[in-house]
């Protein structure tokens, strides 16, 4: 079969175009431009040589071993130095010329220690407005070994969330120690010696059982139930949260 004239012409154009593209792509183009692995290697190299700004806590120990030793015994033992003092690679390279920040005002410590209900229970928190207003934290606390200046008298110093909840509950007037026997050591070393928790129904029954004797200081109209029939044998706190018992809105 004879190939029509116009198809021959078209074939030349298409052929030239294809040839240009294919030669351009596979012959002329340096394979450096199309090598995926090479691009990736180059990216990784660029990434790897980026400057490090946080030196890491081991770097600080080389010179500041006294602080590190002190800190390792205190509550802040898990904290990186640069968490408070900021990135310090420059300081490590030239200790004389570059000094890291040392936050001394009242703004800094509350970043972690201001009361926030979303913070885990038991994490030491303060009410910034009420807690020794205007005094810089470091006048009483050493940030490298942050023990309270004196043993805290009340539980709210650490258990702010419970304190706030309890304050609006029917149990507002009860001291924490009414229900929790607290060894004195707990105030200095909270995880060594933990306070007790009520264990039996009879404990709550001390005030709330129908036949409970009227204790001194107890509120006369504390709600009474018959322990024998009320709530079968479930412990009370299965249904009632003692820090915020129902019955008060």
């Amino acid at each position: 079969m004879k190939i029509p004239e116009q198809v021959q012409r078209l074939a030349i154009v298409v052929g030239v175009l294809l040839a240009v593209v294919l030669i351009g792509r596979f012959v002329l183009l340096p394979s450096r431009l199309v090598a995926r692995e090479l691009h990736q290697t180059a990216t990784i190299e660029r990434e790897v040589v980026k400057p490090v700004r946080y030196a890491g806590s081991t770097a600080c120990a080389d010179c500041h071993d006294d602080v590190v030793v002190k800190k390792a015994k205190g509550y802040h033992k898990g904290l990186a130095c640069e968490g408070c003092h900021g990135p310090a690679v420059k300081h490590a390279e030239d200790p004389g010329a570059v000094k890291p920040a040392a936050p001394r005002d009242r703004k800094f410590c509350p970043v972690c220690h201001a009361y926030d209900p979303a913070r885990p229970t038991g994490f030491p928190q303060i009410n910034v407005t009420a807690h020794n207003p205007l005094k810089p934290c470091i006048t009483c606390h050493n940030a490298h070994d942050p023990v309270p200046p004196r043993t805290p008298r009340d539980c709210a110093a650490c258990h702010g969330q419970i304190e706030r909840t309890k304050a609006v509950s029917s149990h507002a007037l009860l001291a924490c120690t009414t229900c929790h026997a607290t060894p004195e050591q707990h105030k200095r070393s909270p995880r060594r010696a933990t306070p007790s928790k009520p264990e039996t129904r009879e404990f709550c029954g001390g005030c709330h059982a129908a036949d409970a004797p009227l204790k001194t200081g107890a509120i006369k109209d504390a709600p009474k139930v018959d322990l024998g029939t009320h709530g079968r044998s479930y412990p009370c706190w299965q249904c009632h949260y003692p820090h915020l018992p129902e019955g008060r809105s």
């Binding site: 700004r53 890491g56 898990g78 904290l79 990186a80 640069e82 968490g83 972690c112």
Partner: peptide, 9 residues
């Protein structure tokens, strides 16, 4: 860096 500075681990 984020792991380095996290005070509570």
């Amino acid at each position: 860096a984020c792991v380095e500075v996290c005070p509570t681990g």
